[in-house]
């Protein structure tokens, strides 16, 4: 009797384990292993295609004393021609109440894909940059910022 009960539980656990393993084995290849609001948003924007990590100049302070005014600068190497240019750049914050920070729409007339702004960060977190070129390919990079005083109020 006791043995039977034990086996019943272990079978259920085994099923769960198998489900878990297949899940972790399949999903990292098509989407991101981590689950966070920024990654959810990246998956939503890329429609599950994911983005390739690339070497983009993405400048944020390592330590931000004031989370209300954090300067963010980026520059993506691109010829910026009609046939090959960066179309959109998203900035996403992992630890803010909402992951969206800004969306930049570039045109080939700009000659370079570079911009800067100031953003709020509520706590120490990763900030992601996601760029889409005119062929629908995605590039991304990230930067970690330590925030001393949060800047989202409340």
């Amino acid at each position: 009797m006791k043995l039977k009960k034990l086996r019943k539980i272990s079978r259920r656990n085994a099923l769960l384990l198998i489900a878990g393993f297949t899940g972790t084995a399949i999903f990292p290849s098509i989407s991101f292993a981590q689950s966070s609001q920024a990654f959810d948003r990246i998956n939503e924007i890329t429609k599950g295609l994911g983005a390739t990590e690339s070497d983009i100049y993405f400048d944020l302070p390592e330590i931000a004393e004031n989370g209300n005014q954090v300067k963010v600068t980026f520059e993506i190497e691109s010829p910026m021609t009609e046939t090959d240019h960066i179309k959109t750049v998203y900035i996403l914050a992992d630890g803010n109440p909402s992951p969206n920070v800004a969306k930049f729409s570039f045109t080939p007339e700009m000659g370079s894909c570079s911009a800067a702004t100031r953003m709020r960060l509520s706590k120490t977190q990763n900030v992601y940059l996601l760029a889409e070129n005119n062929n629908g390919q995605f590039l991304m990079t990230n930067a970690k910022v330590k925030v001393t005083i949060g800047g989202c109020g409340g």
């Binding site: 109440p97 909402s98 700009m110 911009a115």
Partner: peptide, 26 residues
């Protein structure tokens, strides 16, 4: 520029007070 849109940006609540935007143009 001369009536043609060259740059556009969507701002969210995560952008700081007194929005400061820098971009380049050829």
């Amino acid at each position: 520029f001369n009536g043609k849109e060259v740059f556009q940006m969507d701002l969210e609540p995560s952008i700081s007070t007194n929005p400061f935007i820098v971009f380049q143009y050829k």
